[in-house]
């Protein structure tokens, strides 16, 4: 046992310096497709045609991306000419007015996660938040097992038929005031999981979502950024807003 203690004592600090410094470690984020200018309408149409989920919309000689629908298949990055990719993580968006007081909110926020049918990779990425590299506890975010103690409901997944009741019960069990953060493309647009008998509508349509974090799966930095955005401790990046807004 003491050997573990000593090991822990002499292990270097791995935690990200975010938000004081941006995280730049290679591989921490997969990046994302961003609006791209092409030289001809055909090229734009070609790039848009690569997208299996219709997240890329061709303009005249440019193409724009609705990140909510992007599933990170990277087909648009591997075609010729490719869509531009940007290696950032500041793509979370706020959907409702910020009502946390005081602003910025530096006290702790407790989070209850509800998985409504997401893949295990999303859960794995959220788990990373409490692990050494990201350590969200340092920034005052904590996971709680009961909604009674939760301020924030973090929802992932396309909201399956069987999870509707559980999600509603969880949301109702939370005390006021409460906030909702939807994580992952499937919670925002259903992603590859179609609407129908298994899913009557996404999280975005079922709960008053405060902050949305697209991604498939969204990397931990993006989720962390989303949480900081909810607390009003970082500003929203203008580039996060697509010029063509399209709701599925």
């Amino acid at each position: 046992m003491p050997s573990w203690f000593i090991k822990g004592l002499f292990s270097p600090v791995k935690t990200t310096r975010f938000p004081k410094q941006p995280e730049t470690a290679p591989g921490a984020v997969p990046g994302r497709p961003v609006a791209t200018d092409f030289t001809s309408p055909e090229q734009a149409a070609h790039a848009a045609a690569q997208c299996p989920t219709g997240a890329i919309r061709a303009g005249h000689i440019s193409a724009d991306v609705n990140l909510n629908q992007c599933i990170y298949c990277q087909r648009c990055a591997r075609t010729e000419p490719p869509m531009a990719w940007k290696a950032d993580y500041t793509w979370a968006r706020r959907l409702r007015a910020n009502n946390l007081t005081p602003q910025p909110f530096r006290k702790s926020l407790h989070i209850r996660i509800v998985d409504t049918g997401s893949c295990d990779a999303v859960i794995q990425e959220i788990k990373q938040l409490s692990k050494p590299y990201y350590n969200m506890h340092k920034l005052g975010f904590f996971i709680t097992p009961t909604p009674r103690h939760a301020d924030v409901l973090m929802v992932t997944g396309p909201l399956t038929h069987h999870m509707r009741l559980a999600l509603k019960k969880t949301y109702d069990a939370m005390p006021e005031p409460k906030w909702v953060i939807a994580v992952g493309g499937c919670a925002l647009s259903g992603c590859v999981f179609s609407r129908g008998f298994t899913s009557a509508g996404t999280v975005l349509e079922s709960l008053p979502v405060d902050v949305e974090v697209p991604g498939c799966p969204p990397p931990p930095m993006a989720i962390l950024y989303g949480l900081m955005l909810l607390a009003g401790r970082v500003g929203e990046m203008p580039s996060a807003k697509p010029t063509i807004m399209e709701k599925a």
Binding site: K14, A25, P26, G27, A28, V29, P30, G31, I71, Y72, C73, Q74, R75, A77, A121, E125, Q128, K131, P132, Y133, C216, P217, P219
Partner: peptide
């Protein structure tokens, strides 16, 4: 182990462009 796991994820992303090797 957590550090090792995140290192493996980052290595995957550096190698194939995605942390979970999608696509």
């Amino acid at each position: 182990v957590d550090i090792l796991e995140e290192d493996a994820l980052r290595l995957s992303a550096r190698w194939a462009g995605h942390r979970y090797l999608y696509g």
